[in-house]
């Protein structure tokens, strides 16, 4: 009887402890930052961006060729030449076509971007803003083990120039769609990153739409004179860098040198 008890009691204690740990883990509140609507919005924004890119790729290619021809024909400074005027009008027409395509596609884009932004905004405000103190936020970010190895695969997300807009949303979608396996710490960073990006994109779309109306009117006027304005070249450059990425703007992020020392010690004072 005594021997059986001696064997059984530790086994029972271990089982109870394991069960308690599992229940405690199961009851750990998870943060809800990505409802299914956000995932769907991200996918849709990616599709809209791809459509816009496809539509614009041809006209932007055409613009590049026309500008090259204009420069090769030494039209800079020879604006009175009739051939150069004809070239300038062709460039202006392509420019107008680009603005029209953007004007048609941007409302859809604005709609899906705003939907994503608003869903994330609500989640961030409720889950991280109102339900958490700075200390609990820190504990969420750091995860269960503060001393864990710095993840080398964790994405550094801010500053995504050099990447196509549709690829950017596609990457967001992939990250969110596969985020189930990751902890809350990655979700909080990911949600914050996407939200801030959506804020910027939303503002950019608003400004672009206002600018398109003005630029269209200006170009319609310029068409009668056959003038290429520096503003036109700048706008085309801007659109290209937003849609197709800007290689020069790649942000370099230095990785930390690998730690080599085992850290087994935990102080009783540690929090």
């Amino acid at each position: 009887m005594n021997t059986t008890a001696r064997i059984l009691i530790p086994v029972l204690l271990v089982s109870v402890a394991t069960l308690t740990t599992r229940v405690a883990l199961a009851n750990t509140p998870t943060i809800r930052l990505f409802p299914t609507t956000v995932v769907e919005d991200l996918r849709q924004t990616g599709n809209v961006a791809r459509d816009m890119e496809t539509g614009l790729q041809e006209v932007i290619g055409q613009l590049d060729q026309q500008q090259e021809l204009y420069h090769e024909s030494k039209c800079d400074g020879a604006e009175d030449d009739s051939g150069c005027q004809r070239l300038a009008r062709q460039i202006g027409a392509s420019y107008l076509e680009m603005l029209t395509i953007m004007d048609e596609r941007l409302p859809d884009m604005e709609h899906t971007v705003n939907n994503t932004r608003l869903s994330l905004e609500k989640g961030l405000r409720n889950e991280l803003g109102r339900k958490m103190t700075p200390w609990t936020l820190q504990e969420t970010l750091i995860g269960s083990d503060a001393n864990k190895t710095v993840s080398k695969s964790s994405p550094t997300l801010r500053g995504r120039s050099g990447m196509r807009l549709s690829e950017r949303f596609n990457q967001y979608y992939q990250l969110v769609a596969t985020s189930g396996a990751k902890g809350d710490q990655s979700l909080a960073v990911l949600a914050s990153d996407i939200y801030l990006d959506m804020e910027e994109t939303s503002l950019l779309i608003q400004r672009t739409r206002q600018e398109i109306a003005r630029a269209t009117l200006m170009e319609q006027l310029n068409q009668s004179f056959g003038i290429i304005t520096p503003e036109m070249i700048e706008v085309v450059g801007g659109v290209k860098s937003i849609l197709f990425g800007d290689e020069e703007g790649q942000a370099l992020v230095a990785g930390p040198p690998p730690g080599s020392v085992e850290q087994a010690y935990r102080s009783p004072l540690e929090q």
């Binding site: 961030l124 750091i142 001393n147």
Partner: peptide, 27 residues
């Protein structure tokens, strides 16, 4: 000589900065 610990703290600082920026904008 706890390199990993320090770089984790540095990463945590950057994450808090990003998450607070987003959360405070949302608030």
């Amino acid at each position: 000589l706890d390199n990993e610990g320090y770089y984790r703290a540095d990463q945590l600082y950057q994450e808090v900065e990003l998450v607070l920026e987003a959360t405070c904008t949302a608030c």
